[in-house]
Every structure is written in structure tokens, then in C-alpha cells.
């Protein structure tokens, strides 16, 4: 029943955006069909889904929820993009052709010499 309704809904929707009726059907399915994750449950699995740690069974439930819940789809999509942006910005920082401040180099070399003398 669950698989049938889901297939029907997704076929009907195709590649177009979900309209209000489809969103209502989706939220009805999430509330009433057995085995569906709630949004808080979906939230708990995000980390493991992102890291590829979910079992196939839980992954299917996670993905079904995302197909039916536009808010969670937007949330997860933004979550993934935020991580990618953070990584990119931090990684780019490392490419800056910035050298070592001269006074810091001098302080380090002095500290080493003092350590050798002591």
C-alpha cells in the first residue's frame, strides 16, 4: 500500500514542482502510513545519511521522507551546501600566498637558540 501510493504520487508529480494537493497528499502519507519517519526522526538520521552510515533499510525510509516532505528536502539540501561552502572557503584560505610574518620567524629562531643555550 505504502509503496503503491508513493509510486503513484511520484509518477503523478513527475519532474514538476509539487503543488498544494500533492503536498497535502505527501503530508497525509507521512502522518498515516506505517513505517514513515517524522521530521524529528529524519533530523536524527541526517548525520549518518550524509556520512553514508545508514543501513539500506533506514536509508530508504530517510529518502522516502525527503521525497514527501519539501521542508526536509530544502533543509537537507541547504545542510549539504553549507558544509561544502565552509570546506571550500577554508580550503581556499590555505591557497593564499601568505608567507610567515618576519617577526614571528625571528622570534621562533631566537627561542630555539635560547633553548639550545639553556
Amino acid at each position: 500500500m505504502r509503496e503503491f501510493l508513493l509510486k503513484l504520487l511520484l509518477q503523478f508529480r513527475g519532474d514538476k514542482d509539487p503543488g498544494p494537493t500533492e503536498q497535502r497528499v505527501g503530508s497525509w502519507m507521512l502522518r498515516h502510513l506505517p513505517g514513515m519517519l517524522t521530521c524529528p526522526e529524519f533530523e536524527e538520521f541526517i548525520h549518518d545519511y550524509y556520512e553514508g552510515l545508514l543501513s539500506a533499510k533506514v536509508r530508504r525510509r530517510f529518502e522516502t521522507h525527503m521525497q514527501l516532505c519539501p521542508m526536509c528536502q530544502v533543509h537537507f539540501d541547504s545542510y549539504v551546501r553549507a558544509i561544502a561552502l565552509g570546506r571550500q572557503v577554508c580550503s581556499d584560505d590555505e591557497q593564499l600566498p601568505e608567507g610567515m610574518p618576519q617577526e614571528l620567524v625571528a622570534a621562533i629562531l631566537l627561542a630555539r637558540n635560547q633553548d639550545l643555550d639553556s
Binding site: 502522518r31 517524522t38 529524519f42 521542508m71 533543509h75
Partner: peptide, 25 residues
């Protein structure tokens, strides 16, 4: 952290742009 309504549905936007991280940068 996320907020939920009494039916346990997530609050927040239903839509977002589709810009990639590279485009956003």
C-alpha cells in the same frame, strides 16, 4: 536547531534556490 509544529512537521522554507556552492561563491 530545527523547530517543529504540533504534528511534528518541520518549520522553515518549502523552497530554495538551486545555486551550487561554486555558483554561490
Amino acid at each position: 536547531l530545527p523547530k517543529y509544529d504540533p504534528n511534528l512537521f518541520r518549520g522553515g522554507p518549502r523552497n530554495a534556490n538551486a545555486l551550487t556552492p561554486e555558483e554561490l561563491l
